[in-house]
Design a binder for these strands. Structure first.
Lengths: 95, 95
DNA sequence: GACTTATTTGTACAAATAAGCAAATATAAG
DNA sequence: CTTATATTTGCTTATTTGTACAAATAAGTC
């Protein structure tokens, strides 16, 4: 694994390693249908602009996926993608 | 999962989500025997005091384990423990 | 077009973080 | 006891990060 890949993994872990962002992930985890930001706003009690920024971070790391739907944007979790990356790390660590 | 547990998980991910700390983890990952800080110092090119602090963070999150050995302190990776926590998250995310 | 709703962006600010260096501490060896 | 080595701690600096609020943008509805 080269430095760039390691940095990418660190960025993913950092994205998940913040309480409100992790809460967003768990919230999306329990939804079958994609959710909009206003809805997600309720699970962590912060301003909508903050949720917007957190979702942007999660999207940049490929944790969530965004889709435009009318005037709202709905987010869904890239379940298998994230799970696979976490398991790959777990496997490496376990050796 | 309550807030405290979620915070704990976020703290673990944050601890792993920094380049130099993740490098330390990978370094320890490739060692069979526990390593001292001076040795670990070489893998990421930072001051020994910085390594000391990073190792402290990792120890607080249960990622590494420290053992006094003469005047040096040797660190080893809590492999299965960390791997299990990452897999548990992966499982939850995959749903 | 005017209005409403959803989301993003600009700005400001406080708190947290990472880093380096020097000094302090701990412990072994001479 | 003195010296050498390993590690931690105190201090400072620069940078990043999370947050709130207001304004801007986007897109639907009347």
């Amino acid at each position: 694994m080269d430095d760039a890949q390691r940095q990418e993994l660190a960025d993913l872990l950092k994205a998940l390693g913040e309480f409100n962002r992790l809460s967003l992930v768990y919230e999306l985890c329990q939804c079958n249908a994609p959710q909009n930001a206003m809805c997600l706003c309720e699970c962590c009690s912060v301003d909508s602009s903050v949720v917007s920024r957190h979702l942007k971070v999660l999207a940049q790391q490929g944790v969530v996926q965004m889709e435009k739907k009318g005037r709202e944007r709905v987010y869904s979790l890239n379940r298998s993608d994230v799970a696979d990356r976490l398991r790959a790390l777990a496997d490496q660590i376990e050796g």
